[in-house]
């Protein structure tokens, strides 16, 4: 793998993190991050849709006339989202129920259309695939980080996937009885987002990159 390829794959995680640096897809980010499991589930759904829509758009980039590229991208993305939705409903109904309205809303998630327009429509299939994986992974990590902080301090729990006798919920002593309730509400999500954005901006500046 050349260093450019590696750059395409890894820049979604820190340097061009879709949530903290490019500031895309903030609605689902703030909406679903009340529990860790929702962040992970939403992230996996986005990785799947992003990778496949990037591949198909890169494949079809010479076939789609420029004037109708946006409707064409939306049809492709919506088809993949609907597939994810039906498959999750049939095979993992618990995750489907937890994500609720945010699953169909992946269609209008600006990360996916943003990457289709900014990257996949101008680059090769392999690069678009790597970009999809990197950006999707960066999105998942960001969601999990926000959800972790919000859930630990806002509810005093960490909710993961229930396996066997483990019900999936880890209770944190003290914080469970005296949670900082605002963090689990929308206002707390915005506050936390501001702090994390400041941290990422500081981090880029420290490394001498322009924000």
């Amino acid at each position: 793998m050349t260093s450019e390829r590696r750059e395409v794959l890894t820049r979604g995680i820190f340097k061009e993190n879709p949530v903290f640096v490019i500031m895309l897809g903030l609605c689902p980010t703030l909406g679903v991050t009340t529990q860790v499991v929702n962040g992970i589930g939403m992230g996996l759904g986005v990785i799947f849709v992003l990778v496949f829509s990037n591949i198909f758009i890169a494949l079809l980039k010479n076939f789609i006339p420029n004037s109708i590229r946006i409707p064409a991208y939306i049809v492709i993305i919506a088809a993949f989202v609907t597939i994810v939705e039906m498959v999750m409903h049939a095979f993992v109904p618990s995750v489907y129920n937890a994500l609720g309205i945010f699953l169909p809303l992946i269609v209008v998630n600006c990360i996916i259309l943003g990457r289709a327009e900014a990257f996949a429509s101008k680059n090769s299939v392999l690069d678009s695939f790597l970009d999809g994986v990197g950006m999707g992974f960066g999105f998942t990590l960001s969601l999990t980080l926000i959800a972790f902080i919000r859930e630990v301090f806002g509810s005093g729990t960490i909710t993961l996937i229930p396996i066997g006798s483990f019900d999936g919920v880890i209770k944190i002593p003290l914080l469970y009885n005296y949670p900082i309730r605002i963090l689990s509400l929308a206002a707390g999500a915005l506050l936390l987002m501001g702090f994390l954005k400041a941290f990422f901006a500081w981090n880029s500046e420290r490394k001498g990159e322009t924000v």
Binding site: P65, A72, V75, I76, A79, I83, M86, V87, A90, F91
Partner: peptide, 25 residues
């Protein structure tokens, strides 16, 4: 025609997935 082709392809693949998942749902 391009848009129609893309839409038709998307609709066909959705119909296939739906046929598999609908009874399970």
């Amino acid at each position: 025609i391009t848009l129609a082709l893309i839409a038709a392809f998307a609709a066909t693949s959705l119909a296939v997935v739906n046929a598999i998942t609908a009874p399970k749902i």
